[in-house]
Design a protein around this nucleic acid. Structure first.
Lengths: 212, 212
DNA sequence: CGCTAATTGACAATATTTTAACACAAGATG
DNA sequence: CATCTTGTGTTAAAATATTGTCAATTAGCG
């Protein structure tokens, strides 16, 4: 019986990976939880506890081997897989994400792009042609697509999500400003930019008030 | 002595605001915490507790007035202010954010854009000209700029953040894939897109494994 | 090859966050 | 105008998450 890992822990793993990647680049071979805790400004205890959710990656008296830990966390995050993704919505944000080369390095392969606007259909982003929405269901089914990136206004998002789910998508990276209601076999990760901006707004005005 | 409001609560406020906005659009006048809890799929208890951090906005036997609650949460989030923002990095993501009209509605005013690439300088995004990095310090100082949006690669981000802080920026909305170290009077909100994508990756492969 | 210092992994102790329970005010009903 | 229902605000309990501590183990060194 595997115990469930909390999302709080998962959310921290990419950050560990980032710092370990930096250490790798600087040819650091080993690191202790307390050294890492200084770099990352978290407690050493939390680092150890987080890692021990997945097994003992360190060695007493030595610490953690940077390369080994990096690759273990990569595995945990599923980054040894390749995932094919498509982008729905060829606006600026869609184009920005499609053009972002680093995703490719992590095993996320950009396979297709869709939009309902006829003037965008046929244009290209990084060698990938924008297709019409009519072509979407067939493309998912035949192209072994895992992830759909939703970069369309919230009005259309719910309906499009329905189509995605019906055609067997595994996951949705949702930038539309609406909560999607999907079956539990479909993973959703929301990026609500305006929520993030409002949090910033809160922190600005809250700081201004305490200062005053 | 005001007790500190936890970031967990703050993070939920924009979502409340979103649902309340939808209710407003549908001309719903009042709503109870339990009705809202069904819509939002959270406990009614949490809603009441969250709101009561800031004061009693509801009325016994009546519930919450939608318009009133909407405007109260807006105030809490500091959305009655206007904030001027600039974007550093005129790549696709920067252009996407600059072109996003909804921010304007919330009181975030797009004032300037900067890039180090000479071929981009002089181009326009929604009527705003891209300027050179040399012009940045003066622009912040003279233009009453509150927020800087950082959409540049991580290599340059730390240095640019330093410049921003030195010239009196209040807040940084950081899309660069690096943690910024700034004084406590500067608010930072991170949007690490690859972290988010990795979380999605984890959830896909973790679901695949339990299913197997 | 054995001793010392370092450092993990496990677990106990705190702290925080979420959920539940409930007394009671406000409004509705007849 | 008495009674009943609704639904808040608040306090208490439960569940999660974080931090501190320490025995056990190992690397490094003489």
């Amino acid at each position: 019986m595997d115990k469930e890992i909390s999302q709080a822990v998962i959310s921290r793993l990419p950050r560990y990976l980032r710092y370990l990647g930096d250490l790798k680049d600087r040819n650091v071979e080993r690191i202790s939880s307390s050294e890492l805790s200084v770099l990352m400004k978290v407690t050493a205890s939390q680092i150890r506890q987080d890692l021990n959710n997945f097994g003992g990656f360190g060695q007493q008296g030595y610490g953690y081997n940077v390369d080994f830990l990096y690759s273990e966390i990569s595995k945990i995050l599923g980054l040894e897989h390749q995932y094919n993704f498509i982008i729905i919505g060829a606006g600026n944000l869609g184009k920005a994400l499609g053009g972002y080369l680093n995703f490719e390095k992590r095993g996320f392969i950009f396979k297709g792009m869709f939009d309902k606007d006829p003037s965008l259909i046929g244009t290209e982003v990084r060698g990938v042609k924008v297709m019409s929405m009519e072509e979407l269901p067939g493309f998912i089914r035949s192209g072994n697509i895992d992830i759909a990136v939703l970069t369309i206004p919230k009005e259309g998002a719910v309906l499009v999500a329905k189509v995605l789910v019906e055609n067997g998508i595994k996951a949705i990276w949702n930038f539309a400003h609406v909560d999607l209601d999907v079956p539990e076999n479909v993973q959703v990760e929301n990026v609500h930019l305006s929520d993030s901006l409002m949090k910033l707004s809160y922190n600005i005005s809250s700081y201004d008030q305490t200062k005053k």
